[in-house]
Design a protein around this nucleic acid. Sequence first.
DNA 1: AATGAATGAGTATTCATTCAT
DNA 2: GATGAATGAATACTCATTCAT
Lengths: 200, 200, 200, 200
Amino acid sequence: MTDSTRVRARGADKRRRLTAAAAQVLHRQGVERTTIADIAKAAGVPVGNVYYYFKTKDELVQAALAEHEGSLAELTGALDRLPDPLDRLKGLVDAWVGRRDVAARYGCPTGTLAAELDKRADGVLDLEAGRVIRRLLDWVERQFRELGLPDAADHAVTLVAAYQGMSLLANALRDPEIMTSQGARLTRWLDSLTADGDAS
Amino acid sequence: MTDSTRVRARGADKRRRLTAAAAQVLHRQGVERTTIADIAKAAGVPVGNVYYYFKTKDELVQAALAEHEGSLAELTGALDRLPDPLDRLKGLVDAWVGRRDVAARYGCPTGTLAAELDKRADGVLDLEAGRVIRRLLDWVERQFRELGLPDAADHAVTLVAAYQGMSLLANALRDPEIMTSQGARLTRWLDSLTADGDAS
Amino acid sequence: MTDSTRVRARGADKRRRLTAAAAQVLHRQGVERTTIADIAKAAGVPVGNVYYYFKTKDELVQAALAEHEGSLAELTGALDRLPDPLDRLKGLVDAWVGRRDVAARYGCPTGTLAAELDKRADGVLDLEAGRVIRRLLDWVERQFRELGLPDAADHAVTLVAAYQGMSLLANALRDPEIMTSQGARLTRWLDSLTADGDAS
Amino acid sequence: MTDSTRVRARGADKRRRLTAAAAQVLHRQGVERTTIADIAKAAGVPVGNVYYYFKTKDELVQAALAEHEGSLAELTGALDRLPDPLDRLKGLVDAWVGRRDVAARYGCPTGTLAAELDKRADGVLDLEAGRVIRRLLDWVERQFRELGLPDAADHAVTLVAAYQGMSLLANALRDPEIMTSQGARLTRWLDSLTADGDAS
DNA sequence: AATGAATGAGTATTCATTCAT
DNA sequence: GATGAATGAATACTCATTCAT
């Protein structure tokens, strides 16, 4: 490893730490209640130095959004290795249920971020958040289509909306059990869809 | 009408105007991005005077929450006059769809408020928001129970979560059409539930 | 004096104090080296309160500019009461010389402000500064015209430029004597202009 | 050419580039609104490296001032080759008029720098700026003396002040034409001085 | 000598809340 | 009760300067 590589690695590492910290802290505290100092502290970086990597707070928010988008891509990427689209969708639901405790405490990262950013008058970041959700919708729709179902787009909206809704309820009521029971319902629904046509 | 009565009436009016303004502005801009001055201006009340009616900003938020709770109570109260619980639930869905434009622009008032308040470390108002949602859940559950369905509680969670989810998606994607199509789906689902048992 | 008058008077007084302080401190330290805190302290006003009267630092700069414009208007207004335009112009030169010590220490308020504001990329305030100088030019030109001189506009530029130049030199060399000697020269020049036509 | 020579040459080149960049950027943006990064970028030098050549920002300002002083020396040096002092002075005026567009956009480099530096509490650099202006004054005075005129010093102040004043006005009003007309006036004045004694 | 990165002090601005009348 | 004004703590962002390599 050359010197310049090491330095670049250190710089990239700090940027990654800041991004990860931003993703977590912003999810937990929300955008408006999170200060740059909060993120800096969580990342172990002096405040002034944050601005070497991100010119504005909004850029940090965007990076956090991209981080969540990356997690999602990682998940769908792994699911894509399953041969059966139905298994992929059920795997997605399982993943959601697996994160029930985080959902019950802080909600869905993308969903809560989208909701908060939508309150802004200046529409830049809110479109970003919408884009991430759209990507999830697209992936889900593709699975439904591969299953040969009509109304794949509608089904996708139904599934993702169900996820956002159950996360919000679990969060508002602080009850992870909602994730479990609704997850089970979604799994049953997916099975029914493929078993004998569209029952919804 | 005595003078003091008139004054009290005027005072109550100001309080009401502040509450209504808070409900609307907080819904549109979110709690953190809304200043007391914003609400005061929307209500046509001088800033300094706000504090005569509400000791803190949090009390204004609480009042806004109560206002939304009141709207909900009004709606369910009206629906309660329908003889058939199924019609009541379908009426609820219709009401949601009827507000599709507001939902697409600002999301569900209670849901977005709950999501934002849940980010707070101090758990006072977030529980309030949860309580409002809980009341809706209870009302819905009661209808399902009156319909003689098993799993009334689960069904209630399903319906309300669907509403929250579709509102969030409609908002994030700025697409009121989502409210319409998902509303239709929910109506069909309600019909199927009562027609031939549980299809979900 | 009613209560509201007194309050308004107090508010107006503070605004005036802030404006006066801004005019003085900005002249002495320049725009960029002056902090809001500097002005607040000079005016005996808590920092946070400054923003009740001026929304931004730039508004304070503008107010200071207007203050200098006001001083100028006061001076020309007084000179306007002299019957002879030549006396008015000589009175103007005398006034300049009378302020030689301030000029030697801090330069001409309007001139140095204009020079500093002209460095800005965003052209808003710099035009303001130009406007103040233009007003002086116009007044001087009017006097020359009343004297029946041709090239009144050119003469005006010559006189005002001489003032700006001698102020700058006096300031750069910290030598008030320059104001005196150049003032005498300008007086002689004015006399010669009217004695036997244009000698310049 | 040995390696060390080449390196020294390269180093000297960087220093020269930095100095030139500083002279230009500081003239255009002013001292306070110019960052070290601005100058570094304009010179094509990495920020961190600037400090190898200049220990502080003030040293860069001083170098810029020296650069402007050098330009002036170059100009007067060239004019010194003219046999007639009157031609030298008229050549100086011509040079000023020749730079009318820069003057109208950014003012006289030395004059604006002097005005800005004079606002500083710590008197180090402001004296420097005064010194540069003094050198110009001395050169001009020498020409007047060679012409056999009495009051050479006063004439010098008059000429240089006129230049500073017209530059400031041209800049504040964004009007290069002022340079042209005032330049013509100065040329006439110089002619009149030598033709028939002192007309000013 | 060269350079990307680090540091920390400083600055404008916002805003909930309080106060004086 | 009503109201303009006051207060001060907080926060995003900048930048000269230093450091590690």
